[in-house]
Write a protein that binds this DNA or RNA. Structure first.
Length: 269
DNA sequence: GCCCAGGAATGTA
DNA sequence: TACATTCATGGG
């Protein structure tokens, strides 16, 4: 399966901090687990991706996962030619980033874990959780583990979770999983909410604050207007925008702009 | 061994 | 509302 796109860079997506289970497994080669499936991708040219899936799997699963319906090319052109020089440089630098449509529950638990951890630590912690609580599968000789269901994590032992490195977030994880199992929060329905409403509901979970809620809304519910503010974005705002960044300038898609900025400040500066 | 990480809850004024 | 403190853990 071959895909052509001017805005599809595996390394940039894998290193953009939005996902934690997409790994470099060789030269220009990446592997990821989502929806209980394993996918390998190769960047065979700047605008060409090779995937080891069928046309049918691409149409039914991965095309949507990689948000192929959105015009990233047009957006990047507008940002690059816009009057904000920092955003222009950031969009030029990270033009291969796409906002993945990740599974809401995995995204919620992943970003709960992310607080006060660096990205390598987040990834290793999530992988341990998948190995311990997920289903073991195999694809063409490669073993992989799915992300556990809400039911499994809702019944997980707190001390056992701690042994996997989640630290004080153990109760946050089990509590969020239980809220999903009990129907106190319906993640798929939040996709139909506005971003503002979805963030408000997510923040009702113990251990979910403004930043994590916005990440879940952006990366798990695909509310691309969500704008997570972490230490890196704060740094950008204070050092390049005199302490105030006007999100309304990018009304409706500020989250994508945020990803270009985040990737740029962490990898170029 | 040290520093700090894609924060959030809690307490204080 | 605005800060200050505390919270486990591991990667670099």
């Amino acid at each position: 399966m071959i895909i052509q796109s001017d805005n599809f860079n595996l390394q940039q997506i894998a290193d953009s901090g939005q996902c934690f289970r997409m790994n470099n497994i060789g030269k220009n080669k990446y592997g990821l687990v989502a929806f209980g499936k394993y996918l390998e991708l190769i960047q065979i040219a700047t605008n060409t991706i090779q995937l080891n899936c069928t046309e049918q799997e691409w149409q039914e699963i991965w095309k949507d996962y990689f948000d192929m319906g959105y015009d990233y090319k047009g957006l990047v052109e507008n940002l690059v030619n816009g009057d904000d020089s920092f955003v222009s440089r950031a969009a030029t630098y990270g033009k291969g980033i796409r906002i993945l449509r990740q599974e809401p529950f995995e995204t919620l638990i992943s970003f709960i874990i992310s607080q006060r951890k660096n990205i390598p630590a987040i990834k290793s912690c999530i992988e341990k959780i998948c190995i311990n609580y997920g289903d073991k599968n195999e694809f063409e000789g490669t073993e992989y583990y799915s992300f556990p269901t809400p039911e499994i994590l809702a019944n997980a032992d707190l001390d056992a979770l701690r042994d996997l490195g989640v630290g004080y977030r153990d109760e946050y994880i089990v509590g969020a999983a239980r809220a999903v199992v009990d129907g106190d929060i319906q993640l798929d329905e939040l996709k139909e909410y506005t971003n503002e409403e979805a963030v408000k509901v997510l923040k009702g979970l113990y251990g979910v604050g403004d930043k994590v809620a916005n990440c879940v809304s952006l990366f798990g519910l695909h509310h691309i207007e969500a704008f997570p503010i972490d230490v890196w974005i704060e740094r950008i705002v204070s050092e390049h925008y005199n302490g105030y960044f006007n999100i309304s300038k990018y009304d409706g898609y500020a989250g994508i702009v945020q990803q270009y900025m985040f990737y740029y400040i962490r990898n170029y500066y």
